[in-house]
Design a protein around this nucleic acid. Sequence first.
DNA 1: ATGTTTATATAGTTTTAGACTATAAATAGG
DNA 2: CCTATTTATAGTCTAAAACTATATAAACAT
Lengths: 298, 298
Amino acid sequence: MEFRHLRYFITVVEQSTFTTAASILHISQPSLSTSIKNLEKELGLILIDRSTRESRITKEGKVLYLEAKKLINHYEHVVGEMKRLKQQGPSELSIGLIESSKFWVPKILANFKQEYKDVRIRLLEVLGLQEVERALNNFDTHLAITNQYIDNKEIETIPIYDEKLVALLPPMHPLKNKSYININDLEGEAFIVCKEGFQTREDILNAFRKSGIKPNVQFELERFETACSLVEDGLGITVVPENYVKYSKKSAFHIKQIHDSNISRTVYLAYDKNRYLPPLVLSFIALVKDFFDDKPDH
Amino acid sequence: MEFRHLRYFITVVEQSTFTTAASILHISQPSLSTSIKNLEKELGLILIDRSTRESRITKEGKVLYLEAKKLINHYEHVVGEMKRLKQQGPSELSIGLIESSKFWVPKILANFKQEYKDVRIRLLEVLGLQEVERALNNFDTHLAITNQYIDNKEIETIPIYDEKLVALLPPMHPLKNKSYININDLEGEAFIVCKEGFQTREDILNAFRKSGIKPNVQFELERFETACSLVEDGLGITVVPENYVKYSKKSAFHIKQIHDSNISRTVYLAYDKNRYLPPLVLSFIALVKDFFDDKPDH
DNA sequence: ATGTTTATATAGTTTTAGACTATAAATAGG
DNA sequence: CCTATTTATAGTCTAAAACTATATAAACAT
């Protein structure tokens, strides 16, 4: 069984006919037929139920398909790494980020660049938990900074720091002069929150749930930036990670600490344990660990 | 670049000579030389510094070696999965069982066989929690009946019923005429319990622990059957799931209810969510659910 | 130095896996 | 019942990968 066979098999499954698969693969239909037949013979399993109308995958075929798909992703990743190496060009470090990590990641990258000058760095916005898992599994990113624990034995998830969530109040809000607020103060207020699937949404809604308060959600959106401008225009209150607003200067809104033990969350560094991590990736992980060992509270 | 080339390359690196690598791979040295040369040509990189004395890997070769090693591991995993699938045969249902489930599983299997006559059914004794997880992850079993909750995102654990644990007393025991006993009555008594790693052991020892009583463990063994015959011979007291003795006729021992809220446990049905579950497995799960929906208390 | 040993490279040949074309067989739909 | 569509089979060609024999290079011993 060579990679070619798996590639062919995957294409047949996805096209569900041999003829179209063959044309996509730029080989003749008989070649593809015999190739799949040989694969089945080698494995001793029937992978595809043939018919003249439309071929259907068997349950054994389904297992191979899912496994092979991942394996081919891995293969493509290795080929990509070698191509990059050949071009002598800069190697690459790609990191998936949550929005609130923007304040500290650049500081680490500054150090990192001193040691690895030619490395091109790709920063990707990651969304939900599934998205993080998919990105790591598919070799889209080497690392992810995430605020939900990933319960997957293939992925190592290291807690790096805890961060508070703070409320943002519009300029003229009645609570603007309090030095801090309680979560109960937010009851009934028009509330702005991330859309379904975004990681911060769950953290915030959980905190409300634990406190027995039902937020009056009026807006759902994708980015903190948008939420901030809605707050500035007096459309409601939102809750964001403290780190997101701590370092920003221009703020027409009021930042208020919330006195509630549920209003905090842990941020993790995650990576795929099974794949080869180049030295530059290990080096970046070490920098992150060092950074937060010195400053335990962030 | 096919799997073969990577395998060859890895062997050369690990042997650090072409000649020995070739003999390990059961090919001739010239074949191996040209194969590696072709790989280098395809990638456009020099992977190995040849010399007559001892070949050394280049910097680029090292990268490929580390990447390829991971990739080949992945490949071997997939091949292993397919071999296991083949050995399992196309229509087999394998279930991991705890001993106390023997009373009801056959009733369900009778129904199941009416619908799926040709399916071979394998019943496996499962042991500890790790054993269950491993068996489900490795395709050893489609399902497991277990009495511990499995906290693993990949595994779905459905509670199906609660069962009491009862004490078995020897024929001439002083407590034989009481209608029920308390857990304190068992203090100091010679006690028979499952060996380390068996699931029921933990349930029973936990119940004692919660009641602040230390059992005087005199025998550790693997099967309830053996425990029963030790009790019959007056060697001590044991505690077993009520369902294990409820339906057996010949009993030279006394079965006593224990009045203690800790002396019960939940039995679960567990399966791997990520794997493809054939229809016959889904059908079996449905039968189990139906069975216990009708009879909520077992 | 120079021959011996050891390892890799090259040349030429055979074998085999995978590609092709042409065509048969099967089946759904008009 | 014919037609269009799809997969399977047969026969052939090609290219990749195996082989054997031998050249070449370098290290080491005498």
